[in-house]
């Protein structure tokens, strides 16, 4: 459900994600872009914006892959999906995201969770994402 990428490679005891909260939550208003985010959460969204899809020059945020960002007491949690389950860049993306979020000032630790409900679809691409994909030569 999450990688254990840690910048300082410090061993840590097995830490279960908070299933209680995660398993029952739903995501409204997708795509999420952090429009109203402030402070450290805003900075995490900005950092995630910088990450591109490995195959196309479009931000993963504009692609609609990020469902939520939350920062609490220096712990950033990112909820993310994949366009398809066999994505060969899964591990790379998760590691990039965790590193980007962890680099943000005010974040001490970052965890990325994979979620698959609701399923990603082309409808989740933002207007900016559509423009970038068209520029790249895709009809969308």
């Amino acid at each position: 459900m999450s990688t254990d990428f840690d910048l300082d490679i410090e061993p840590e005891p097995c830490r279960y994600p908070d299933y209680e909260e995660r398993a029952t939550r739903s995501f409204d208003d997708l795509p999420a872009t952090g429009e109203h985010a402030e402070g450290v959460e805003r900075a995490v969204w900005d950092a995630l914006y910088e990450i591109q899809d490995p195959e196309m020059p479009v931000s993963i945020v504009d692609l609609g892959l990020i469902y939520d960002v939350a920062v609490e007491d220096g712990e950033a949690t990112v909820e993310m999906t994949l366009t398809y389950t066999g994505c060969p860049a899964r591990k790379m993306l998760l590691a990039d995201l965790e590193a980007a979020a962890a680099d943000v000032e005010g974040v001490e630790e970052a965890t990325v969770h994979l979620v698959f409900t609701p399923e990603w679809s082309i409808d989740m691409v933002t207007e900016q994402g559509r423009a970038d994909l068209r520029e790249f030569g895709l009809s969308i």
Partner: peptide, 12 residues
């Protein structure tokens, strides 16, 4: 529920 989250995507 963690399993349920993943089933729809795979079915598709």
């Amino acid at each position: 529920l963690p399993l349920r989250d993943r089933v729809g995507k795979v079915l598709k």
